[in-house]
Design a protein around this nucleic acid. Structure first.
Length: 569
RNA sequence: UGGGCCGUCGCCAAGUUGGUUAAGGCACCGGAUUUUGAUUCCGGCAUUCGCAGGUUCGAAUCCUGCCGGCCCAGCCA
């Protein structure tokens, strides 16, 4: 349980600690979470959110939520809203520290101007194809652009006119003048500004030019006073460029030192679950799921509808840690975290998923008996609720076995079992249809064994099954979700694949990832608000569907099953 | 003979300025409690740190050489 108290040591914390000791940033810790508003947040973002906001909280600093909206052709306001909701859902709404890279467009532009004036940036007029051709390859150096030697005056003139909108898309581009022979391709005169006559969701038509990520990101960090700029491993090669821009700008008096530092950690990988934006888009657009918030999707919207919780994600991020090694986390770890947090927070209810009729032969025809069920077995302060026992009940089909396996301790012919929170019953008979399926079970109840009454547990029975009055139970739709993919690494090559075989992750989709059941539910739970999460006893955790649940027509989604050691070993 | 990074128990992951017995979590395996085959509790779980050499009184930590994996040639982020 050490994970609940002491923060877990990891290399980023160590770095911050040593910066704190040395007073590098005057004791300040500022981070940022910088999503691009061009898609929905997924589980990987949850890791980043808890890391960045969590660190800021632990060190009494600030974490900025910054929308990285530097590419107007891909970004939309709708995504901004969705992302904001998700961040808030995880518990980090902070309007005061919400920003947009586009807020800094003017500063960014001035910075670029400064670089041009310092002879550190130039306007290139090669086509995109020429630029690519001259970039060289991984093993060969690139070649200088014929425009690389333009005078500062000419560059200034051209860049100002780019900003004024005098040129067409692609006609010119502003590049940093670094080194076309650099072994790190990012340093081969990277683009700073491209011309894009496009409408921006926030700045409208103010700008015909837009800054590139590498330039905009580090400058935005510096503007916000970010001290530790955390990102994933694939940006490691970009760090020299991050430092180059800030260093040059600081030289020009644009920023004060100390400058922000970029620190990279490994991204989240989960078994059975692709997390790349590209693949998630394919799932949605190909109609393989029911939209971005399909409960099977690894998006935060999907997780929410699935009944996953912010606290579960928090536990998960603590549990998996932060490092630089490529890791692949079993999806079961996430499920465990949800189980663990839900066990604590969810009230218990009863739902019969696969109903079988049970008749108490010695119970009066119109009789009823009020039983009391605790809302949480470990929290008596959460109270109890009433469940009514009648002659005819629904029990779980799986709780009666005509031909029980060894160690089966539910109901069987001539066997005894306790009706949870009710009475001990003894099997007396059952009906079987032509196919051999049990259609009804008859049992006698023992009136002296009512749960909670003195002497009720004088007689011990091992089995304990849940039930619902056939008179009161409410018909309810329950959706049971299974993993979306049938293999741990969708789309990955298998051991015995032919060398030329190309795999498509969509071929690994699990065709059977959703089961819709008609079940019986306790009346009180049927009236729950959407998004209420319960443990359906002996089954798992279920959430009233955010969109479709109605008291008159209840719809629940299964978040995760209870652990079940029956049958193991 | 491009550059950057990673390799510690089934899965994560501390430790890496060399110093006694290689943290912790998850999973797993026992056993106790239990009116959820749940939960909770208690116990077990790496003579070994990708491999091979070397330096040293002493190495997961330093050196050399291999092996394996990931990332990079968008006017995307």
């Amino acid at each position: 349980m050490s994970e609940s108290n002491e923060p877990i040591s990891h290399f980023i914390r160590n770095r911050i600690d040593s910066d704190q000791e040395r007073g590098t940033y005057g004791g300040k810790v500022t981070t940022r979470f910088p999503p691009e508003p061009n898609g929905y947040l997924h589980f990987g973002h949850a890791k980043s959110i808890f890391l960045n906001f969590g660190l800021a909280r632990d060190y009494h600093g600030i974490c900025h939520l910054r929308f990285d909206d530097t590419n107007p052709v891909k970004e939309e306001q709708a995504y901004v809203d969705a992302i904001r909701e998700d961040v808030e859902w995880l518990g980090f709404r902070d309007a005061e520290h919400e920003h947009f890279a586009s807020d800094y467009f003017e500063t960014l532009y001035q910075g670029a101007l400064a670089l041009v004036k310092a002879g550190l940036a130039y306007v290139d007029s090669q086509s995109a194809e020429e630029m690519r051709a001259n970039r060289g390859t991984l093993k060969e150096p690139g070649h200088d652009s014929p425009y690389r030697g333009r005078s500062i005056e000419e560059n200034l003139d051209l860049f100002t006119r780019m900003r004024a909108g005098e040129f067409a898309d692609g006609e010119h581009i502003l590049r940093a003048k670094i080194d076309m022979a650099a072994p790190n391709l990012n340093m081969r005169d990277p683009a700073i500004y491209r011309i894009r006559h496009a409408h921006h969701h926030r700045t409208g038509d103010d700008w015909p030019i837009y800054p590139m990520y590498d330039y905009a990101h580090c400058v935005s960090d510096a503007i916000e006073g970010v001290t530790h700029s955390l990102c994933t491993l694939e940006f490691e090669d970009h760090r020299p460029l991050y430092d180059w821009f800030l260093d040059k700008l600081a030289d020009q008096g644009f920023f004060e030192r100390p400058l922000p530092q970029q620190i990279e950690f490994s991204r989240l990988n989960l078994t059975y679950m692709p997390l790349s934006k590209r693949k998630l888009i394919q799932l949605v657009e190909g109609g393989h799921v029911d939209g971005w918030d399909d409960p099977r999707m690894p998006t935060l919207k999907g997780a929410r509808r699935r009944g996953f919780t912010p606290s579960g994600f928090r536990l998960f991020t603590d549990r998996i840690g932060v490092s630089k090694s490529d890791s692949l986390i079993d999806f079961g770890v996430l499920e465990d975290c949800m189980r663990e947090t839900l066990n604590d927070s969810a009230e218990r209810r009863i739902c019969v998923l696969d109903p079988l009729k049970l008749v108490l032969v010695n119970f009066p025809e119109d009789g009823e008996e009020t039983c009391h069920a605790p809302n949480h077995p470990k929290k008596p302060e959460w109270g109890k609720r009433e469940v009514t026992l009648t002659r005819e009940l629904w029990i779980e089909r799986g709780d009666f076995a005509l031909d029980p396996p060894k160690k089966y301790f539910r109901l069987k012919p001539d066997g005894e079992v306790r009706l949870r929170y009710g009475f001990i019953i003894k099997h007396v008979d059952h009906d079987v249809d032509a196919q051999g399926n049990v259609t009804c079970v008859y049992a006698e109840y023992d009136p002296d064994t009512k749960s909670g009454t003195p002497g009720s547990d004088a007689r011990k029975v091992k089995g304990n099954i849940h039930w619902l009055s056939a008179r009161d139970a409410v018909e309810t739709q329950v959706r049971q979700y299974d993993r979306l993919f049938k293999v741990p690494a969708p789309g990955a090559r298998r051991e015995d694949d032919a060398p030329d075989l190309e795999r498509d992750f969509l071929d690994d989709l699990n065709p059977d990832s959703i089961h819709t059941l008609t079940t019986y539910l306790e009346p009180g739970a049927a009236r729950a608000e959407p998004e209420s999460i319960y443990q359906f006893e002996r089954h798992g955790y279920f959430v009233a569907d955010q969109k479709e649940h109605r008291a008159e027509r209840p719809v629940f989604n299964r978040a995760v099953t209870l652990r079940d050691s029956w049958g193991k070993g």
